[in-house]
Write a protein that binds this DNA or RNA. Sequence first.
DNA 1: ACATTGTACAACTAATTGGTTGTATGTTGG
DNA 2: CCAACATACAACCAATTAGTTGTACAATGT
Lengths: 113, 113
Amino acid sequence: MTEEDEDRADALFHALADRTRRDIMRRVLAGEHSVSTLAARYEMSFAAVQKHVAVLERAGLLTKRRSGREQLASGDVEAVRSVAGMLTELEQVWRGRIARVDELIASDTDEED
Amino acid sequence: MTEEDEDRADALFHALADRTRRDIMRRVLAGEHSVSTLAARYEMSFAAVQKHVAVLERAGLLTKRRSGREQLASGDVEAVRSVAGMLTELEQVWRGRIARVDELIASDTDEED
DNA sequence: ACATTGTACAACTAATTGGTTGTATGTTGG
DNA sequence: CCAACATACAACCAATTAGTTGTACAATGT
């Protein structure tokens, strides 16, 4: 369960830790694009771009649908939000720390009275 | 400039793409911890944990301050927020797509009138 | 003074990554 | 039917990663 969540988090952050893949995400969030249309935008080989798309797909950041001989990729905004949610969770941990510090300050002030 | 931003994004997402490092982030966002205190929590060697801390530090996700012979690590919530900001940016791209689809629907409806 | 503790770093290994080229397969237009 | 196009995938390579052990060194406590 939690182990699976961690696997998923690993895959999501890893998928986003590459500028080509982040750029692909921008394109497929803006609209559907075939793999070859995407590949045409980068200087690397078609196969390299196809692999990047596969990494994003495995992480759940995009989905593909077939249309004739093309494979149209579309970004999944929900997956992006789930990553944002993980960061929010981290921020909550930080808020807890601040709350505790505030408590400490409050009790110090009490002693000073 | 943009190139440097991309380097930074690479480093941030990469740093978070490891469960041990995310766990370390939770601890150091909750409060200061020495490297050895952190290391004691994991089954891997001290050196391995120290390397993870170094990755997080290089990415700017935590800072260290010396206190006697200990090195106290503290999470930087601003760095976490900057990552969240990148995701928000992606979400904006998606919103743009939706807006364009809405326009299209509106113009179709016009035609139908 | 010195044994202990906390940290850093180098050298090594196995696994993974990001790229390549080449090949196979499915889909389409003439 | 068949040439061209879109995709998938395997095999390979260089670089990086995540881990290990070992060594060095600074700060602390008795």
